[in-house]
Simulated scan of single mutants.
Amino acid sequence: MRERDAEPRRRGRGFEAAAGLLRERIRAAGESRGFAVSRLLTHWPEVVGAEIAAIALPVKIGYGREGLGATLTLLTTGAAAPIVQMQLPRIRERVNACYGYNAIARVTVTQTAPTGFAEGQVAFGPAPKPASHPPEPEIRREAAVLSGGVQDPALRAALEALGEKVLSRPGQKKG
């Protein structure tokens, strides 16, 4: 056996997108919870809008015995439940637009995870950043002095802004 034959064969396609590598796993996981269209899970903010996606997540789709219309279950927090409840007709309309036909007949809201699901919490976005106060004039002057030797005005402005942030950090040794 030649040494070249022992090497694994390359497929020759180069890099592949991560979405392509995970497509089958996402589809299988979605179908196990009743999601025939994985786009509903992977593009949830685009389907229902960012404001609803921030407070509610799709958990499962249950199909009736006759097969006429399904029920989409959304997971949310207690405080956001009334807001989501008011938006149910709009959510149902947008989800059905994602499917391309009237697949969802009802949308229910739950504040806890259904039995057997590990995720019992809605994923929250990052905490809002505290309001920044303008730096003191002496810090601005010091940052301007430090970046004064730079000829490019855009680069100098960026360095001044960086210098102001570094010099105004509390509890740090300045300079």
Rank of each mutant, 00 (worst) to 15 (best):
I83C: 02
V109K: 02
V122N: 02
T76V: 09
P135I: 08
T110R: 03
I139S: 11
I83S: 07
F117S: 04
P128Y: 03
P134C: 00
V84E: 06
A113I: 03
R94F: 05
Q87D: 07
G78P: 10
L68Q: 14
N96I: 05
V109D: 02
L68W: 05
P82K: 07
E136R: 14
A113F: 04
F124T: 13
G69Y: 11
R106C: 01
P135M: 06
A79R: 05
L75Q: 01
V84A: 09
F124E: 14
V107H: 10
T108V: 14
P128V: 09
A70N: 07
I61V: 15
P114H: 09
L68F: 10
G67D: 01
F117R: 04
R90Y: 08
E142T: 13
C98K: 05
G64T: 13
A81V: 05
E138A: 15
G120V: 00
A97R: 14
Y101G: 01
M86I: 04
R92F: 00
A105L: 15
G64L: 08
N96Y: 03
R90C: 00
T76N: 03
A103R: 11
I83P: 00
I61A: 10
P128M: 06
A103P: 01
F117H: 05
T112Q: 09
R65T: 11
R141Y: 01
A97C: 10
T73G: 04
E66D: 15
I83T: 12
V84R: 06
T73D: 09
Q87A: 15
Y99V: 00
G120P: 00
A143S: 03
T76K: 02
A105S: 14
R94E: 06
P135Q: 07
R141W: 03
E142Q: 15
T115R: 07
L68T: 10
V95Q: 11
G116N: 10
T73V: 14
V107G: 08
E142C: 12
V109N: 03
F117Y: 09
G100V: 02
T76I: 10
K60H: 10
I139T: 15
C98R: 05
V107F: 11
A123N: 11
A127F: 12
K60W: 04
T77V: 12
A118F: 09
A123E: 14
P134V: 01
H133V: 15
A113P: 05
A70P: 03
M86G: 10
R92T: 00
T108M: 05
R65D: 12
Q121S: 06
P137G: 12
A80R: 04
E142N: 09
V122K: 02
A105N: 11
I91F: 01
Y63T: 13
L72S: 04
